[in-house]
Design a protein around this nucleic acid. Sequence first.
RNA 1: GGAGGGUUCGCCUAGUGGCCGAUGGCGGCGGUCUUGAAAACCGCUGAGGCGCGAGAGCGUCUCCGUGGGUUCGAAUCCCACACCCUCCGCCA
Length: 418
Amino acid sequence: MIDLRVLRDDPVTVRASQAARGESDDVVDALLAADAARRQAVQRFETLRAEQKQLSKQVPSASGDEKAALVARTKELSSQVKAAEAAVGEAERALRAAHLAVPNLVEEGAPHGGEENFVVLREVGTPPEIDKPRDHVELGELLGAIDLERGAKVSGARFYFLTGVGALLQVGMLQLAMARAAGQGFHPMITPALVKPEAMEGTGFLGAHASEVYRLEADDMYLVGTSEVPLAAYHTGEILDLSTPKCYAGWSSCFRREAGSYGQDVRGILRVHQFDKVEMFVFCRPEQAREQHLRLLAFEEEMLAALELPYRVVDIAAGDLGLSAARKYDCEAWVPSQGRYREVTSASNCTTFQARRLNVRYRDADGRPQIAATLNGTAATTRWLIPLLENHQQPDGSVRVPEVLRPCLGRDVLTPVG
RNA sequence: GGAGGGUUCGCCUAGUGGCCGAUGGCGGCGGUCUUGAAAACCGCUGAGGCGCGAGAGCGUCUCCGUGGGUUCGAAUCCCACACCCUCCGCCA
């Protein structure tokens, strides 16, 4: 949710942000109107309520006719107060609905336009020259690392087993992410993968993403699509000490329905219903958010570099940001079999948008509570196995293990199994 | 699945219809004293909305797990629900 004070004082900025996203500012007008309507309702209620309280206090000390008259008057007021209170409730519900419909203010500098208007900030590393590259499905099979056939047999399309070196690679990669993150001051966390509706709702995943989310009907619980959900909800309703940012690295399995993506990326493990991910999450003061955002991006780049993967950094255009991000940088790793870069990390600056909804605050220099800023970014995830296998493949189908992963694999090269 | 107990402004706690405008302690902050510190003593110490004010502020309303209800008036009475804890059973 955006800051209503900003909206009232500076609606022009909010409209400009909508324009950058290529979206209509009807929702801005609706929010302004709902805000005004609520304030009016509140004032009416408060006037009546104050009178009721004042008269009510006189009842015990009054007697006889005077008392009867007082009670009669307050009785009348009582029903008016009740009606006014109901009107306030109604106005608040309307305001909330209008509020939720307005996306976050786009950060200055973000490219305008839609999905195709992203800006490539840099390309790092050189895509390897591979004659007739095998894709990760073939390599996974050769190495005994990925079993898609049995994944489908047991769980259906878009499921897989990681086996042997595949399982070790994933564990090693995620462990590397955890260890490095911890070394840089991120607090390691292993989070719940099932959350209550409030947590899912509070992080905004029941809006546009609702059909993406698995829901357990019998228990009214949700499977998380990323540990961003439990991490963001972790401090719900709290007032934090943010003299330094609170940084977490959360490891969880992630579940996504991938509804509406039928036919897209159906091969292999690029787009699957379940995967594992280490996610970085930061709570900080709003003025630190940009700096923290760049720090998350830098961490992602260090991870990709450590795994010796060629990648590029993309500045996502305003229209492709999603509801809560003010700015988003993706890293895309080179995928030889596709001859193009594919998304492997995503770092979002949600400014105060997400924390306002979750009511996560800190105290400013004057000791007053203020809304915190939140950010998130990918430290490592199952999908990375794709560029990892493909970029390091050798003509005979073996795969070179990057230096940093050798300790957990116990060898330098993965070779095809009989 | 069954049976109990609990939920009060950081923590603990008092509070069974109007002097609750929520008690007291702990913790925290400030001060006195001290070379400094501790102790002692004094003071301050929840959140949100709205209005007024240039501003430090002032006024007002809301919030005692959540949602309803009773009442002129509810932390307090009634109903429903949520969450937490303990024990029993069952299962891993």
